[in-house]
Each structure stands twice: as C-alpha cells, then as structure tokens.
C-alpha cells in the first residue's frame, strides 16, 4: 500500500501528538544543555526530530508552536518564527529524500539546513534588529564589523559559523535517537518507513 503524503494527509492524530513533544524537546533540550554548561544552543532538536519522522509539515508546525510558546516569555523570538519554520521544512524534505540514513549523509544535510537557516535568519536579524540578537554571538558580529566588513556579510558569516556547529550536533543527536525508535512506532507515521528499511538491511 502506498502511503499518502502531503499537507492534507500528514496531520494524523499520532503526528499531531508529536508536535507538543517536539516543542517540549526544543525547550528541555536547551535546558539540559544549560544544566551541563555546554557551549552550544541546540534549541531545534525537537523540530529536527519531528520533521524527520513526521515530515516537513509537522516539522514546520513544531517550529511555529515552539516560537509561539517562547514568545509568551520573550516576544523578540516571535520575529524569528520563519527561521524555525524553515528548519522544520528543510529537514522534513531532506528526510523524504532519504538524507538521514547514514552519518555522512546527516552531515551533508546539516550543511544544507544551516544554509537555509542563515538565508532566512540574516535578513530578519539585519533589517529588524540592526544585526543584533541579544546573545553572545553578537560579539562575533562586532568582531567581523571591526575588521572592516559590511553588516550583511558580518551577520551572514557569524550565522553560518554558528549554525554549522549547532545544526550538525543537533541533527546527529536527532539521527541517533530516531534509529533507536521501535519499528512498531515508526510504522504508524507517514515518514517512519524511511528509517525502518535501514534496520532491516
């Protein structure tokens, strides 16, 4: 039987229930990182997970809800909602193309996702916030600016460096968790079959 995919078919009940879990993982994951005092953010892990097994639309929805919940406490993050949407969408599409079945493919996917995020995030950061984000990466932007670069290139370079590190770790962790999931659960999701085949071989 061929699985139907697309916006109309992706939002099954089990996939809908995946969204709150994804959002919570985004939050709690970032919190664990904080507790362990690691030098990364990793606040898109939940989005990555749900996008991998739930598809691009579920991933995008997770991104939107994450930022909505975040904006309850910090309205500035509302402006960056398109970034999270892009992350969910790109990871979902890459997952459909089978890019999350081997470690080297995951790393290639991380580069693509980082590029997509940078392209979406930089204009928001430059046009709406004058290049600042309010966290430590601003120091790097300032360094690039001081070395004589333009605002756009400075923000773009800072973003791409940050994203490459962040997204490769994030996607690798998500990948290792997904391949541990039981085939029984994965079979219930529209996009889970991609990860089951890998186990059988």
């Amino acid at each position: 039987m061929k699985i139907k995919r697309g916006v109309k078919h992706d939002f099954t009940l089990i996939a809908i229930l995946l969204i709150p879990i994804g959002v919570a993982i985004n939050f709690v994951g970032a919190q664990i990182v904080n507790l362990l005092k690691l030098p990364v953010y990793l606040d898109t892990m939940g989005t990555a997970l749900t996008a991998m097994i739930g598809g691009p639309w579920i991933g995008m929805a997770t991104g939107i809800f994450s930022n909505l919940v975040k904006s309850l406490l910090n309205p500035v993050s509302l402006a960056f909602t398109p970034v999270q949407m892009a992350v969910g969408l790109t990871i979902g599409l890459l997952s459909m193309a089978g890019m999350f079945t081997k470690v080297w493919k995951v790393l290639v996917a991380a580069v693509i996702v980082s590029l997509a995020t940078t392209i979406v995030a930089s204009p928001i950061q430059v046009l709406m916030f004058g290049g600042a984000t309010g966290n430590s990466s601003d120091a790097l932007v300032a360094t690039f600016l001081a070395s004589g670069q333009q605002m756009w290139t400075a923000v773009f370079s800072t973003k791409i460096i940050n994203e490459l590190i962040d997204k490769s770790i994030c996607l690798l962790i998500a990948y290792f968790i997904v391949i541990k999931m039981s085939p029984r659960y994965l079979s219930k999701l529209n996009y889970g079959s991609i990860f089951i085949k890998k186990k059988a071989s």
Binding site: L17, P20, V23, A24, V28, L68, V69
Partner: peptide, 14 residues
C-alpha cells in the same frame, strides 16, 4: 489542543 498540551508537557518533561 496542540498549544495547550504543549504548555502542559513542558513542565512535565522538566
């Protein structure tokens, strides 16, 4: 439902 259950799940997960 998604929105409300998210707000419930976060403290639970913490």
């Amino acid at each position: 439902f998604i929105f409300l259950s998210t707000l419930q799940i976060i403290p639970e997960m913490q």
